[in-house]
Write a protein that binds this DNA or RNA. Sequence first.
DNA 1: CGCCTGTTTGACACCTTTCAACCGAAGTGG
DNA 2: CCACTTCGGTTGAAAGGTGTCAAACAGGCG
Lengths: 241, 241
Amino acid sequence: MQYRRGQEIYAPDDPADYWYRMARGTARKCAVRADGRRQIVDFLLPGDFFGLVNRHEHHFAVEAITEGTVVARYPRRRIESLADTDPRVGRRIREVAFESIARSQARMLILGRMSALEKVGAFLIEMAERRRDGAPEQVVLSMSRYDIGDYLGLAAETVSRTLSDLRQGGAIRFEGTHRVRIVDRAALEEETGDGDWDRTGRRHRPADPFAALPARSGHWGFESGALRLPTKHEVRVFRRN
Amino acid sequence: MQYRRGQEIYAPDDPADYWYRMARGTARKCAVRADGRRQIVDFLLPGDFFGLVNRHEHHFAVEAITEGTVVARYPRRRIESLADTDPRVGRRIREVAFESIARSQARMLILGRMSALEKVGAFLIEMAERRRDGAPEQVVLSMSRYDIGDYLGLAAETVSRTLSDLRQGGAIRFEGTHRVRIVDRAALEEETGDGDWDRTGRRHRPADPFAALPARSGHWGFESGALRLPTKHEVRVFRRN
DNA sequence: CGCCTGTTTGACACCTTTCAACCGAAGTGG
DNA sequence: CCACTTCGGTTGAAAGGTGTCAAACAGGCG
């Protein structure tokens, strides 16, 4: 099936008769509240499966972002009976599902405990990694700043500002509004603390108050490897340059 | 297997040789950063499956919260081969996985787009619903305020304050620090906007600026059905009473 | 009883949102 | 071809919600 920009692939409460696989283009899976607040739960890129649910109805809406988005659609009941007879199919479905769980849970870390700078940095890295077609420092952002904001739990203005900060800080370069080149990937990676999430959580924060704070020495900037969060004043000065 | 309060059930990077099912007690699945920031990805209550991953290693730590937490442990490879031969097992695993996906994605809505008041309200309702043993307006919070905060992406102090606000607003009552009775469930439910998430997201927020705003009429409080977010000043006055 | 962990409350700082304005690009119709 | 509109992006200024720091308090346990 082919879709136009903005077209709905399925709506919440639609009967969940199909499972889907993105073939070309980009889509967003999202929920919207009456007051206009929106949360994008996932961006769907080529190769991604979606629409896998138990119930007979979907919970979210999925909408095409790019013109000419192409989606493969599989009748749910047939796939399920196929999985019953062919163990490889069942195994593959479980793999896809577990992958989805891992991705969802990784996003909780981002949504719950990261600053705007870290969120946007993590987002750029995620988009770079998810490109299957090489060029890992080329990032194409097919979605709008509003979409990115609703994906990260930020206002679109904050996304725009943060991207500008990263650019001025030398971590990225713009090659058009929707095309970013990662110049200093190490800075972005350490910024997001990508590998930092680990180990036990037995100790609470109040129990180790002087554990590994980010170095406050030096001035603002990324020369120390990791991006440090500049203070308000520094940012202001920063932006004026 | 039985665990003591705070004991680790598995660590990140542990070989993922088992799948688990919570039998008694409560546990948290979490990640911690070097700087002390922690995100709890899920609370595990009796009946919940966990540890389902593709890879050979886990990504998160799981730790018992209550003394005497009991967990059933299943060898992963045996379950997988069992699933290959018995379609019902495979089906069940998929169900569990899809359920987990739905829960994760529902939590994104909470983490990304809700205020502290809404987060805590949603949390109380979630805990009430997940109790299998009746008494749906009795909520037992086995976990600490720090745990709740790291689950919701809030500071523990904010959780405490918000609970106090809900108590003073008449939505809940304390029956001990870790035991809450939901007095005005409707207020909590409308507060979280539980049913409000829906429909298409084709329109961005800037495109419909005067869509269904929460009624600003009346004074603070819950009399209008939904909890409205009090302004800073109102909260201050509120708390002094 | 004293220590320790966890909870509550207060005061203040600050990051992010909100409200605006401006700008550029794309599409439309005269 | 050029107004005109619309949409999305960027930037500024002000407001506010939440985090941080701090202190007091309660409960459990040796």
